[in-house]
Write a protein that binds this DNA or RNA. Structure first.
Lengths: 194, 194, 194, 194
DNA sequence: CATGAATGAGCTTTCATTCAT
DNA sequence: GATGAATGAAAGCTCATTCAT
């Protein structure tokens, strides 16, 4: 399995740094290779093509998001609490990795539609996590029984995403994680049963 | 004033169609010129460069958004009603122009950071409109006096944007405008004063 | 005759200024037209094409060179004196018109071979003047009877030209005309009969 | 060192031929690449850009001029003899390479001011060689002690250059090298002490 | 005579990918 | 497995010239 060889990670980590520092369109394969300390051709021993680096990168990092969040919400009982942990963890991971935040919030969005479709497929896992919390909340009566799960999920994801992007575009100069409780409060109101 | 000459509009309209149909990176200047029925060189009599077409396009359309919404909310008294009109109008305009929806929700986001900064500057006008409604709602006591306007605005814009993008990525196959009331309800709950 | 109409001169004068200030390759027809205070299209009422402006310009100015020199040497008896007047006048005219010096010594040489052939044809008149002085000197015994007129002419013209070009490339910051006597002395030595 | 790799020379040699045969402005990079038997992109592995090909070409060839002349004059004692060797060698090298003569005497002069400045910097080496011969001649008393070295150098270079250019513009149809002794005689007269 | 909006051909350079070593 | 030299397709923009008014 290539994914476990050291050069695989080396190349992905190099890609995050190179893209964050140079921008998506200035991140040539040769630049990533140099940062990773391998030859250009070596990249193609681990990835089908350039797009495959980006997809793998996103898959890898998004998997980390889902894992971390699942771990954090495991002990929580109420859906509202789980949502709070999700927002907090989401913001926290981005706060921890300056480069990753730039790459996911800004640079990767410059990719073409094809790549974006694939990124969306990967995102499904994360969106499914939101859905499951919402469904659970509806089942326990914590959330309104007629809550539109798809719309609520779009609100939750759209709000976290917009908040994170604004923070990155403002050069990450304030504390993103500190915003989690208020963002959570805004989101939760619409979901609750009266 | 070049902006009032027929070829200016002709080129912008052509750009929307060409970009929606071919994607941002496959929209060569020559393709836009052909669609507009002018020579390649003519483009450069009306626009500084290719990027300028996109900026002008966005400025133009976003101006239309703001105008339409301002017109619609003019007669409304309550902030909540104004927000409903905004969501409805936002969704309605996108529903009316299949090509425009693709361009603003998907293609324009592939632009580089420079262009995105300019797009953001244009967006400021729209975000300001949201802010003014929120502030008014706080003043009249309709919204919580401690509502964080910036976060609330990010929720509102992020939710509308995410909802619209999901709709476009699903090939616009359901009725976006019909979602306005429920989206509005989700958004408004968090803003209201108890 | 178009050459006597005011706009003809206006355009030539504009060309000298524009080329001197912007360089040969940055002297678009539209720039010359603007400087001349006429519309782009008007240029083509007076000149066949862009090259024709340059040829006419050179013809015009070189004719002036020949006229001035012929006038100056008219009263001189000895060939050596005539050569001195030629060098002096050549350097003097260039010293008087900063723009013209840049155009003839630097910018016009960037033209393509076709144009250069035509410029050379015009130069023939000037070179013929040198030849006639040399032939006269040989006839009167002032110059060696076996002097190779073609080579001597190439020395004379080559030296004046190189001296003038070096002066222009040094930003015309010393007195070119003052060099005439010494240049003349260097040139004349090889021509004289023992 | 790229300059020693075979493709470096291959491309320079191709450039000389292509420029001589097609003219400066009709020498597209693709044409040079084809003549050199490499891909267009390969050019850019060896040269920064198109201009760099020309500068390198000139540097290369002019270095050859200086080397050859230095070699030839090494055994000569008198400055006058050295000058003769210089003129002869200068003419000889051009006579030997039809293409090179066209490129240096005609085509390279069409370059813009920037490139010409760089060419002039390279020429400095050659002009310095002339100066050193003149200074030596002054020191040994062979040349007049009050000889203006700069003007004499301009005469020498200007005359050789004009003679060579005239020869090229006459399709190299007479023997340039045969002119060296008479050119030398013309030049030397003005320098000698009485 | 004069205008100036419109035309459209033409070219340097980049960079993802390959493949001989 | 690893290398990195070589490939070659692809596109934005300029500007001399025209011609309807």
């Amino acid at each position: 399995m290539k994914k476990n060889k050291p050069k695989y990670r080396q190349i992905i980590d190099a890609a995050v740094i190179v893209i964050a520092e140079n921008g998506y369109h200035q991140s040539q394969v040769s630049k990533i290779a140099k940062q990773a300390g391998v030859a250009d051709g070596t990249i193609y021993l681990y990835f089908k093509n350039k797009e495959d680096i980006l997809i793998s990168l996103f898959e890898n990092k998004m998997g980390h998001f889902v894992e971390m969040i699942e771990e954090k919400i495991a002990g929580k009982v109420r859906a509202a609490e789980k949502l709070l942990m999700m927002v907090e963890t989401h913001f926290h991971i981005l706060s921890q990795d300056k480069h990753l935040a730039i790459v996911t919030q800004l640079e990767l969005r410059q990719s073409n539609i094809d790549l974006r479709q694939k990124i969306n497929a990967i995102l499904k896992g994360y969106l499914g996590l939101i859905d499951s919390i919402l469904l659970e909340g509806k089942k326990t009566g914590e959330f309104a029984s007629n809550l539109d799960v798809r719309l609520a999920r779009q609100m939750i994801f759209g709000t976290m995403d917009e908040t994170a992007t604004t923070w990155v575009m403002n050069d990450q100069k304030y504390d993103l994680t500190a915003l989690a409780p208020e963002v959570h409060r805004l989101l939760i109101s619409g979901c609750k049963s009266q």
